[in-house]
Nucleic acid binder design. Structure first.
Lengths: 114, 114
DNA sequence: ACAATATATGAACAGGTAATCATACGTAGA
DNA sequence: TCTACGTATGATTACCTGTTCATATATTGT
């Protein structure tokens, strides 16, 4: 197969990320690519701090499932937690996350409108 | 198991998205949650229009694989295409996508710095 | 019409992953 | 210490998804 190219070089027009960076990017997006985790994140976007049971109750999802989900988000640095007695409060970790979530909502709205 | 709640009601503090919305959100993020697709998107973020073979060559990925990936992105409205002879040019579909990608890069940088 | 090129798509197989179950851990109160 | 509660985690299972191979479609040139 001969290749008919339109762009002579892979040109770093803005700087194409390395395979490694792309992998990390994808891993990060993967965290949002699950309905349960997405719902958790949006719940946290609303009330800025929630304990595990509150989340489980609000979403009507098993506590175990929520806990597993929060673990992944925590390890990735997307959420942080704080213990107070028996309760553990979770919240979004930084502003980029909030912006990502907001932008994604905008995009969905954009698609809905046509 | 008795639930000790910190927030009396599932309160729509900013408006918790429905299960359906969360599902759509997750599906959208899922598109970015693959290294190949992520690399394609970042390549398109750089040069604003590329044909399939250019992408395959630039990323060193089989053309078939790129084609499958682009199909999903196209159906989801993330990229659009334009035929010119035998070549099909792909580009990002709207500004939200660009902002999402940019924000995600910012977040990664944020994590890297500490 | 035929051949070559560029892209698309269906099927199958391999690897990953979220939900569930069982259980462990940490904390508070009696 | 014992019990109850809130949370965390390992293992299993069932499902989903990306890659590959084979093949189809579209376009151009002879």
């Amino acid at each position: 197969m001969t290749v008919q190219s339109a762009a002579p070089k892979p040109g770093p027009t803005t700087g194409v990320p390395s395979v490694e960076d792309a992998r990390r990017l994808a891993q990060m997006f993967q965290l949002f690519a699950d309905a349960t985790r997405a719902r958790i994140l949006y719940a946290l976007l609303g009330s800025d701090e929630l304990c595990v049971n509150d989340i489980a109750a609000a979403l009507d999802v098993a506590e175990t499932s929520v806990s597993h989900a929060l673990r992944l988000l925590r390890i990735a640095g997307v959420v942080k937690n704080r213990r107070e007695g028996r309760l553990v409060y979770y919240s979004l970790d930084d502003g980029h996350i909030r912006m990502l979530l907001s932008t994604s909502i905008d995009h969905l709205a954009h698609l809905s409108r046509g």
